[in-house]
Design a binder for these strands. Sequence first.
DNA 1: GCCCAGGTGACGG
DNA 2: CCGTCACATGGG
Length: 250
Amino acid sequence: MVILNGEYLDPGKIADSGQCFRWQRVDEHTYRVPAFGRELIIAQRGDEVTLDCSQPELDSTWGAYLDIDGDYDGYHRAAIGSGLPFLADAANFSKGIRILRQDVWETAFSFIISQNNNIPRIKLCLERVVERFGRFPEPSDVVAGSLAGLKLGYREGYLYDLAERYAPGFTEFRSVKGVGPKVCACIELFALARKDAFPRDVWIKRVEREQFDGRFPEERFPGFAGVMQQYLFYYGSVSQKRGNKPCEQL
DNA sequence: GCCCAGGTGACGG
DNA sequence: CCGTCACATGGG
């Protein structure tokens, strides 16, 4: 059992942040987190968070996954002090979000499914995939036809293309069918520890148009604009879920 | 029936 | 380089 300060670690917000699709909510304070073929239970207790792993497991696996060394106090301060009111609001609302460092293969697979799709259905698709294989599939499991009937739509073929070409260390994601600039940026940000990556989905484009005079000033957050992107995305996705039109709740 | 969703590839200008 | 369109699926 490991206990961490929860000021910048909020499992509920991370689970809803649209970067991971397989966290399972056990109850309001507890999440089952599958990754790397293992499972971690994360529980909030007041202003602390407990992980059901040993210190060596934290050091070898879960610490990196949770970006335990990331300077989230610094990121938060940068947003608050940016002079950009919308970003400051988003950062306050999103306090506790972290950028996970997830498995590269799983992230690429998941975000190919994410294209022109919505988060609840992305989760359903991945549940069906995991159910078929009894675990998250390996690249060698994903051969032509192996994903048939899982209602992945036209993305099924893209996944075969990914599986054919993927190997550990693979970085040519842009040449995989179904990986454009947005999906590639998600792979970089959520799996490759590239906090400078800045995925532009429909919500971010809308917010850039309506709140940032057309374009978010990434250059003002060198090396961590992607963290700001997550603040903006989470702020927007939660307000959408509440039924508000984007930006209107302000 | 429509529109939308953490978009992209193909095609025409 | 741009803009447009289809793409498979399901929810509102």
